[in-house]
Computed example of a mutant assay.
Amino acid sequence: MLRRLFNRTPKTVPTAPPPVPAGLPAGRVVWAIGDIHGRLDLLDRLLSAITGSDAVRDGVTSTLVFLGDYIDRGSDSRGVIDRLVTLADDPGFETHFLKGNHEDKMLEFLEDSSVGAAWCDYGGAQALESFGLKVPVLRHRPEGWAALSSDLAHRLSPRQRDFLESLEYSLAIGGYFFAHAGARPGVPLDDQSDHDLMWVRGSFLHSETRFERMVVHGHTPTDEPFIDHRRIGIDTRAYESGVLTAVRLEGQDHRFLQAVELADGEIVVRPWSVAMPT
């Protein structure tokens, strides 16, 4: 009996597919833009530089990927939404707009006014102000939040609402995977939950596990763009730092571009160099 047990053929443990090298096929250029948070002024300057440097070229597909968190905290959430809606009609670029946790919370507020206080505590109040609305004076009364949710629904144009409700959760192009927050280690990228794609943080940031593709994300702010063997992070806290970051991907190469608000209020565009760790 023991001999039969020990002589059994061990089960084969499936192995994860090897990572796809971080890169894009020939004829493809991708710009990923980090968390905007209502900074229309920075967005306009950055887009002007991007569209000027990557004009339409024969045989080249230029793609803009926005990583979410277009609203809250900054002063012009409404203007940012309008700008992105207009950009979606630009024939010079293929555009993809991902859903961030702040858009997720705004949409939840439109369906369930009870989350209004929590949303406003981390930036929703500024978004409401951009639509000409204010947080209820008596925050503890549910009827005030219900009225505010209804007012916001009326202030959103059909196209703005459609834009928010049609945001994508993730996108894969070549050897890159784009998501607002990142991805949960140990779960194939194709099987990630919508919630993790918008909200994950610690387990993703602190793991050394590589995914099938290089993950490009925002959500977690840093003073400088971040890159290592498994992820590229480009949330540079635009609403507070005055720095909005994008990364340009072509072939095996990457480079960063930033719109920066100077002390005197002028906005300039500058490159930013981050070395890939060995």
Rank of each mutant, 00 (worst) to 15 (best):
R83H: 09
P25I: 02
P21W: 09
E212T: 14
L24R: 06
P158R: 13
G144V: 01
R4I: 13
G124Q: 02
P136E: 05
V200L: 07
K134R: 13
D121I: 00
G218D: 04
D112N: 15
D235E: 07
L197S: 05
L164C: 10
E143D: 15
D69A: 00
I227V: 15
V137Y: 09
T222C: 06
S53L: 13
A55P: 08
Q160N: 05
V60Q: 12
A16K: 14
P17E: 14
S203L: 12
A117T: 05
D54I: 11
G27I: 01
A246R: 05
K11N: 12
P188W: 08
I232M: 14
P271C: 02
L47P: 07
L87C: 05
R3G: 00
T86N: 12
C120M: 02
D194W: 05
A238I: 04
A117L: 14
I234N: 05
G186L: 09
D54H: 15
A118H: 09
D89A: 15
F178Q: 04
R255K: 09
R201C: 08
A127M: 15
P17H: 11
N7Y: 10
S157P: 08
H206T: 13
A22F: 10
R201V: 02
G182R: 05
D194L: 08
S77G: 15
D76H: 06
E103H: 00
E103W: 01
L138G: 00
D191F: 08
A183H: 08
T236I: 06
H140C: 00
D235Y: 06
I50D: 04
Y122M: 05
F131S: 01
A263K: 14
P271S: 11
W31Q: 06
G251F: 00
V60A: 04
G100T: 04
L40E: 12
L5A: 11
W31H: 12
F93I: 04
L205V: 12
A22R: 10
I232W: 06
F163W: 12
G174D: 04
R161I: 00
P271I: 03
R83V: 02
L262A: 14
T86E: 13
D41Q: 02
V215I: 14
P142R: 07
P10R: 10
I36H: 09
L128D: 04
H154F: 10
R231L: 12
G132F: 05
N101K: 01
L262M: 13
L197E: 07
L24T: 04
G123H: 06
G218H: 03
P221K: 01
Y169A: 09
P158W: 11
G59C: 10
L171H: 03
H195L: 12
R159D: 14
R3N: 13
F109Q: 06
R83C: 10
P10F: 08
D41L: 06
F6C: 11
L107P: 00
I36A: 01
E111K: 15
R270K: 15
G27V: 01
T245M: 03
A147T: 10
T220I: 07
